[in-house]
Simulated assay, not measured.
Amino acid sequence: MGSRYLRCSMVLVLVLSGCRSEVPPEPPRPVLVDTAPAQAGAGALALAGEIRAREEAALSFRVGGQLVRRLVDAGDRVHAGQVLAELDPADLAQQARATRAQAAAAEAELARARSEHARYQALAAGQLVSRSALEAQATALRAAEEQARAARAQAAVAGNQSGYAQLRAPADGVIATREAEAGQVVAAGQTIYRFAGDGAREVAIALPEARASAFVIDQPVEVELWARPGVRMAGRIREISPAADPQSRTYAARVELESAAGEVSLGQSARVHLAAGDAGHRSVPLSAVQRGEDGSPRVWIVADGVARPVAVTLGGYGESRVAVLSGLPADALVIAAGGHLLRDGQPVVPVDRDNAPVEPVQPKPATDAAP
């Protein structure tokens, strides 16, 4: 009876095992992958700028007066020492003559004081005057000497000021702008011309406050003229202002053009392409970055047809991308979105934004092992 029951059980097991069907494998899930160039720096930035001369100056008279002659105009080339404008010299000449007359009077008074002092010295030697009278004459002589010295200095200043009626070019260059007209009464220090010296040309730009700390002196950049799109010239950041502009909240900076002084003109518009500290590192979309269980950043990649999370070190954040400094295998297909819905080892099919399949690439190590 027992053996018969055992044979029936075995037959039942064989029948049930023949009826059981295998569980179908999980179908691969389509995932959107990042197809941007591998070296597209997240910190890349393009700023508008203007071609300027390194040596710029606001030219003005040292004295005030009426502008009677304007000898050059905006755009004219000038040479060092060339007269650019003249003031009415009449008042300055009169002032120079007046100070020379005052100096002559002071010299005459000094001669009289010396003569009186010498006479009192002779009288004091014969005890015909008191010592106090002699000391008074000595004091008067010293006062006359100081007054004569002051008068001579004033005469020299007035003579110099008469020469200040002519505004001269400080060096070879070009007149960038003109800001006064003949007949106008100008004050001392009021700008008459803006002068741009010959030599190096630069691009004046404004760095945004939020990213100014990512740029450093001597950082290489590329300059593209609006008039010559697609042609980029090498440059470097020469100067960054230590303080932000109170109105625009930007930091003024100057970009030096390395070898293009003859290819650009003052006032031209340009676009400066910068990489904010993370140039040369791969970047990924912001949506590709997830947080691991320990809170560290990670991204999902496609490896051998399955999804794998990798821990990464991030760099500077851009508007839509973030630089990955380390941890990301070279040439890996990065899953651009939906990483929070994936699990490690899940089969996936990489597709682009047009839902077209993307050929998987076997990931390579981020750094080669030492031999």
Rank of each mutant, 00 (worst) to 15 (best):
A279G: 15
Q121P: 03
P309C: 06
P27W: 08
R62K: 14
R29Q: 13
R238H: 10
V186E: 02
Q166D: 08
A124G: 06
G75T: 09
Q166I: 02
A212G: 08
Q95D: 14
D344T: 11
P25K: 13
A279Y: 04
Q154A: 14
D245A: 12
Q147V: 03
A44M: 09
S265G: 09
L84C: 05
A125N: 10
I175Y: 04
A244G: 08
T313S: 13
F215A: 07
R168Q: 12
L84V: 06
P309R: 04
R112E: 10
D88E: 05
E222R: 15
A275P: 01
A188N: 09
R168W: 05
A155R: 00
E22K: 12
D352N: 15
A275F: 03
A323M: 03
Q137C: 05
A148C: 08
E263S: 08
Y251V: 02
G43V: 00
A206V: 07
E239W: 14
A57F: 07
S296V: 02
R114K: 13
A80G: 07
P89H: 07
A330F: 05
A108P: 00
L325M: 12
H281A: 03
R232C: 01
H79F: 09
R7I: 09
E222Q: 14
A153T: 07
A158I: 00
G49C: 06
A108H: 11
L286T: 02
I192R: 03
A332W: 01
G318F: 05
H79Y: 08
V289M: 01
P360S: 12
L87S: 03
